[in-house]
Design a protein around this nucleic acid. Structure first.
Lengths: 104, 104
DNA sequence: CGGATCATTCACCATATGGTTAACAGTAGC
DNA sequence: GCTACTGTTAACCATATGGTGAATGATCCG
């Protein structure tokens, strides 16, 4: 995981931004309104989202248009799916283990 | 997202631990061998995994048995799935947008 | 030109994260 | 009891993260 999308998603404000961009591209103002932090704070979150490749930016005049980069997020989604497939079989294993403990 | 599983997954060593525990419960030694960091470093990662609820620990004699807590990871997996469902429709939107730009 | 708007960078601060070595605590086994 | 083993805690350090107010850059519009 070169770009570490999980690092990008490890802060609630950044997840909020991703949620809004999942509905389609938006400007910085649109994508980040109402988080209750200052603009420099927002700028830093956007910088990290860009560095990790989760978001791309196109400057249009004085506004910046942000877009989600699905490929990078898919890395994270795929990893999660893979793990879930494995731990799905785990419920039984844990069950067995607990029963074994209870009977000993 | 109270326990912030994404925070737990934001470090490669912690993801490595989760990957191993996805195959079933293991002791600290088993789950964390070969990461090339000291034992205190491992202890800290485990502490965070426990605090976020991703991993639970049962002390058995002098070893600690670690287990994955699927519910907490499911929160993250579900969020990712939800976002993916949304951004899946986005490919077309982005396509349209790029075409519009190219033709203007 | 001059002001309003969108957003960033600068300088600064506090806390979190990630790592180390050394010491400690508990358990197992001879 | 003593030693080996499993793992944590303590003390420390460097860097990253997350926030602020003030200043700056760039564009749009009257």
């Amino acid at each position: 995981m070169v770009n570490d999308p999980f690092r990008a998603l490890s802060h609630p404000i950044r997840r909020g931004i991703v949620e809004r961009l999942a509905a389609g591209p938006a400007t910085v103002g649109e994508a980040t309104a109402g988080f209750g932090v200052s603009k420099p704070a927002i700028s830093k979150h956007l910088k990290l989202l860009e560095e990790t490749g989760v978001v791309t930016r196109v400057i249009e005049g004085r506004t910046h248009r942000l877009s989600l980069q699905p490929d990078v997020l898919s890395e994270a989604a795929d990893w999660m799916d893979h793990q879930r497939a494995l731990w799905g079989r785990l419920f039984d294993v844990v069950d067995d283990y607990l029963k074994e403990q209870a009977s000993s």
